[in-house]
Design a protein around this nucleic acid. Structure first.
Lengths: 330, 330
DNA sequence: TTGAAAGCGCTAACAT
DNA sequence: ATGTTAGCGCTTTCAA
């Protein structure tokens, strides 16, 4: 751990040249400014010797750009989001950008705070997977020149979005069962006010209605006893096909089914919206709909680059296709 | 989206006061400098009206501090690390710091690059969960005035570290089985060169030796057929107690056990180092050793704050205790 | 009670 | 081929 940082001026001084000469050389513009090979080498060597690292703030202040993007997510410990941030970070890194990741815990107040903070830190752009209270974000976002791309959940009809068509994808699920459902059980998490979940509920419902299949809704949580009771009730009601609207809910459902000793897929079938690493290890392995996280990440970054170019290209809503992972539970 | 940012000067100009007056007021030093209530109110209102956000770079340039910390991890999509970053981010946020998270994919070259990049961005400090090639980091880290705290994996004997005693914790595992093992199967991931895994292997081995229990090692991977074969082999060899050295390996092992229709815990017992959300949903639920992620995160931040104070307090290696989650597989 | 001005480290237009 | 200098937006010392 060294005690002080070397500045451009230090190099200039120790070599008796001017700061600009040093700046030119260190920015690879030596040729362009016809700086002699000798001087260049001298400067480069000195810089290495003194372990010169440019001051990011001076540069930022001067250039007005930070090469930094802010990513606002509901929960970084959710595998979907952590995969997504990984994908985004990698794409961004290739383009020379760094990434601030912040986790809001699906709390709109926190979200607003964190977005303010990111703006304060002069990120060049924002990627947001919003909680529900989007209207609250509008005024803040409207007052900053920072472009925004929405991901996973649509925040603003008129801005770029990359994600999945939750409505349609869940509607399709109803047709995927190996046996035509007599009655569908729609399993959702406690917090069904999150936009994506709402869309999935609506999508599943409408598909059932279109196919004249009766359905029933239930919310499942960590409370095992409650989940078992609810599942039993539904099966008694004649439900033979379950659509779990996210992977956590699927986990709870399968656990309940195991406890109830209901055979899958013989007696009852289940499909999960969102895959999970563990699903292939279950007995039987769980069939799931998998979102193209990496694709979403890549496309998000593409959209962002477009905005950063201040291109006038129209904003787009990009709906990526999910893939159906056929295992044995459907 | 507004087109231009308001600066201090804009406010000063529109109010016909000087920049310093505005600066004083906006930094809450109005009283201290005896600025009249009227002027203060005028300035505050104008700032709000023009939606003033201070320029982070100018401030940083001036003050030399960024209030930003860099976190370097092997893999953000690994639940352990994503939980950890969440905990760290939260503690840090309370103290007014923001966090850059970067994922190295356990690749030392990438790691070095990303650390360089973080230094370039003038983070105030670094938190690193290093890959193995620590010697490579030394020179870079030695040449910067930025303090480092190591987390999860020890990078430097003489610097702060927060994590878990992998050696001792895995040694204890051997005594945890409900039946004294006749022979222990030590299950590790393909890449056993990662420091934590190596320590866990050594710890388990030594415990077996001390208790005069024979043991056998095997590496498990995604390759299901191979895993099944290896597990079968070990059971034929008399192994009745498995220690899985991380949660992925445990997943593979249990899958193999299911396929082999070996009853757990009747015929064979298994414990996983590292817990997983899914473990409680298995039949039977999987017993695991759980690392105190939140505690590790909090303590890491505490260490960091100490360093940032430039306190001369001695560097510490903080070993946090794991908790044994008794479910039914041991 | 307020204003002027220096200076943080860097870039680039302009001089020489 | 290289040096001088203004200015990015802010804080803070000193002067008025």
């Amino acid at each position: 751990m060294k005690s002080k940082r070397t500045s451009l001026a230090d190099i200039a001084e120790s070599l008796n040249v001017s700061k600009s000469t040093v700046s030119f050389v260190l920015n690879g513009k030596g040729k362009q400014f016809n700086i002699s090979e000798t001087t260049q080498k001298l400067i480069l060597d000195k810089a290495k010797e003194l372990n010169y690292v440019p001051n990011y703030f001076a540069k930022g202040l001067r250039e007005g750009k930070t090469q930094t993007i802010g990513l606002v997510l509901a929960d970084i410990s959710n595998p979907f989001y952590s995969e997504l941030s990984k994908a985004i970070q990698e794409s961004l890194y290739e383009k020379g950008y760094s990434l601030f990741i912040v986790s809001t815990n699906d709390d709109s107040t926190m979200e607003l705070k964190l977005i303010r903070d990111l703006i304060l830190r002069s990120v060049d752009a924002l990627i947001i997977a919003p909680c529900n209270g989007i209207p609250a974000l509008k005024p803040v976002l409207d007052e900053t020149p920072i472009p925004v791309v929405w991901v996973d959940r649509i925040g603003d009809e008129f801005a770029d979005f990359v994600g999945v068509d939750n409505y349609m994808e869940s509607a399709m699920l109803v047709k995927r069962f190996s046996v035509k459902p007599k009655k569908v059980g729609i399993l959702h998490p406690k917090r069904s006010d999150v936009m994506t979940i709402q869309l999935r509920i609506d999508g599943t419902k409408s598909a059932c209605e279109k196919q004249a299949i009766p359905y029933e809704l239930a919310s499942l949580s960590e409370n095992q006893k409650e989940s078992v009771d609810k599942m039993k009730q539904m099966i008694d009601d004649g439900v033979d096909s379950f659509v779990a609207l996210n992977n956590k809910v699927a986990l709870h459902a399968i656990n309940a089914l195991n406890i109830l000793k209901v055979e899958i897929p013989k007696k009852v079938r289940i499909i999960s919206f969102d895959d999970s690493e563990a699903f292939s290890y279950f007995a039987p392995p769980v069939t799931a709909l998998s979102q193209p996280v990496n694709g979403i990440g890549k496309e998000t970054v593409e959209r962002l680059m477009e905005r950063l170019k201040e291109s006038t290209e129209n904003r787009k809503h990009l709906m990526m296709e999910c893939s159906f992972i056929e295992r044995s539970s459907h």
